[in-house]
Design a protein around this nucleic acid. Structure first.
Length: 258
DNA sequence: ATGGCTGCTTTGAGCAGA
């Protein structure tokens, strides 16, 4: 199966790009973040017309996550929105089971800056996520955690690591929180394979960030051991970032046999 | 040089993103 993640920065604006990408890449499950769409306005019909079944948890203006799965593979089951026990009005988590694979779509808080209250919220949020995942992994040995983590794991994932040292997305506490997720038994599927230098998933709209290759790798696919063992590829597809009115993020996909 | 783009919002200046 092919699983993928894409922060679309408004599904309303990016719907044509998403439909084209589904047609071209034919993922079995695509996780979306920043749909910025209330559920009542979710473009479910257009998604279904493209041969996909949508699950969504959204709100006006900010956040919003969705899971799109190939209709032939059936709808997801055991759907969970949010982190159980973590009271949060922000719509950032959606999980569903496809066959025997648990797919969890996450939109980690940005954090704004290490001095911000939003940074503390980010760290609390990540701690709650890790606690919940510990239980999820017990229930679902085949688990994939995909999304916008808003964390660059390593200096090679940052265009200018010296300038970003200690800053939000790169701070020790954030990288430590990511390590805690990996310590649960998850693998960064992207680093299972040789990758081009300067592989990124987000580029600032300003200052021609994309053309100048000034980006960060902050969107990730983490796989539990049984899935990582059967993962045959993981890559960033930068093509949608070249389109008119692109999202500032590019999609990432992973291929898993069986 | 704290800007710069983009999307959104009881429509227009301000927030948020990263």
């Amino acid at each position: 199966m092919r699983i993928a993640t894409w922060n679309v920065n408004s599904l309303k604006v990016r719907l044509p790009h998403v439909l084209a990408w589904l047609e071209q890449q034919k993922p079995d499950v695509l996780c979306l973040q920043e749909s910025k769409t209330e559920d009542v306005n979710f473009p479910a019909q257009a998604i279904m017309d493209a041969g996909y079944l949508p699950l969504f948890s959204g709100q006006k203006t900010y956040n919003g996550v969705a899971l799109l799965s190939r209709a032939a593979g059936g709808a997801g089951t055991d759907v969970t929105a949010g982190i159980p026990g973590f009271d949060d009005p922000q719509k950032r988590v959606l999980a569903a089971t496809y066959g025997d694979t648990r797919v969890i779509c996450i939109y980690v808080p940005n954090g704004e800056s290490v001095e911000s209250d939003k940074y503390q919220y980010k760290l609390r949020w990540l701690a709650a996520l890790a606690e919940w995942l510990r239980a999820e992994l017990q229930k679902y040995p085949k688990l994939a955690l995909l999304g916008d983590y808003n964390i660059a794991p390593d200096d090679r994932d940052v265009y200018d690591p010296k300038a970003w040292a200690g800053k939000v997305l790169c701070s020790d506490a954030e990288r430590s929180a990511l390590s805690s997720l990996l310590a649960l038994g998850l693998t960064d599927s992207f680093r299972q394979f040789d990758q081009p230098e300067r592989s990124f998933t987000w580029w600032d709209y300003r200052m021609n960030g994309f053309k100048r290759k000034l980006g960060m790798r902050i969107d990730h696919i983490l796989l539990s051991a049984p899935l990582a063992a059967n993962c045959t590829a993981c890559a960033v597809d930068v093509e949608p970032r070249k389109l008119e009115r692109p999202s500032d993020h590019a999609p990432v996909f992973a291929d898993i046999t069986n």
